[in-house]
Design a protein around this nucleic acid. Sequence first.
DNA 1: CGTGGCCTTGAATGTATTCAACGGGGGTGG
DNA 2: CCACCCCCGTTGAATACATTCAAGGCCACG
Lengths: 232, 232
Amino acid sequence: MRSSDIAEIRKLPLFKDVSEDNFARLMRGAYMQTFPPFVDLITEGDSSDFLHIVFEGSIELYAQWNGRESTLGTLRPISTFILAATIKDAPYLMSARTLEKSRVILLPSADVRETFLRDQDFSRAIVDELATCYRTTVKYSKNIKLRNSVERLANYLLRKNKAFGNANVYELPIEKRRLASFLRMTPENLSRSLKTLRDHGAEVDGNTVRISNLEKLSEFSKPTPLIDDPDC
Amino acid sequence: MRSSDIAEIRKLPLFKDVSEDNFARLMRGAYMQTFPPFVDLITEGDSSDFLHIVFEGSIELYAQWNGRESTLGTLRPISTFILAATIKDAPYLMSARTLEKSRVILLPSADVRETFLRDQDFSRAIVDELATCYRTTVKYSKNIKLRNSVERLANYLLRKNKAFGNANVYELPIEKRRLASFLRMTPENLSRSLKTLRDHGAEVDGNTVRISNLEKLSEFSKPTPLIDDPDC
DNA sequence: CGTGGCCTTGAATGTATTCAACGGGGGTGG
DNA sequence: CCACCCCCGTTGAATACATTCAAGGCCACG
């Protein structure tokens, strides 16, 4: 691995407080790899040999059952996945594929577990990361259980608008069919729901989202930090 | 707190490896409390002053939004809740109420966080617990996203049958309306789905479940450890 | 012995999925 | 450079699935 990459990794919240020794030991077994688009990195059910970290590009988390497939999230730099399986030395619960050309760090799970025991600052960072991921999935479940599909979509548009600096105009960061799956809807249903939202202050043309009436959209969406704030 | 209670707590996986000193310090601030049925213990949005542990009874986790309510889980002895909020010193994402007379241990969150930093074995146990909870919610999301309501119900009946020792006859552990909410259905829909399952090897009369044809039910349910095994 | 909550059933409504068809954009290969 | 094809997104119609509303039975509880 290039030393410039290692310096970058060192800056990650997960590693920045790890002792010099322990970090060096972790990096000895680590490697950075570049993947083309639409490559499966991990498959649910497999044992977790590596902790993955997205360094560049984007990664889709998805799951399958009985011939169906569902998107559970999209990861962008810089995020880890899937930490819980690594920590527990348990099988992956989700699969992951690149959506574009991506650079990914692979850390042998055994090394991560060992460093966890050895380095208090690392274990603290791991726990923080784990707790954050956990809370993300709880919010995700609440979103799906408490809202219907149009409400989920409306709140998604609001969340992304905030993430893009409240510009009120932005591009959808993922394909519509993946967004549909993420929001637990079919692509057809997404299309129709987008039309519905024109009456509520949001217009989507192609991949361009325009919040034409933020107040109206907010009133319809009723966002709450306990579901929609990623930092909460 | 009674010393017999403290001895019981000491046996919990979360605490059994904690040093004598640290455990004693934790217990100084802890207290055990008995609550009547249907008492709200925590409310989503509140700050997490205590880590809770169910000692006796049962606790419902639920969330609300826009006048709606949804059950996210039921806790039985001995489980913690809600660890992630305590660790991150963040607001609760779920509310919790007793469903019956329950005994609950309250540990001041600040003490938990302090002990976490002080005691390596405790931090290890915390991480394991967190990772387990995290994986539980991932499985929950997969269940809801990949299965329709009858499939979710069928797999629920199978899971509980396994939990009750594969006796093929057992009592539903929670009220049907709460089960319905947990499975993301209405009570009416649950009633009708139970009738549907008569054709697939499961008969439910009142609270009594009878798996009349396990093979048929399994074939219909298509359970997978990556969703249905709580220990996976 | 009333009363209230839970569960069930039926009917009507609303929401979401499926199936089919079509247009457009991007990429490939002739 | 163009023709072609494939996949995505959209639209419409039919269907399936789920919710709502209303009513009644049952049990537990006061």
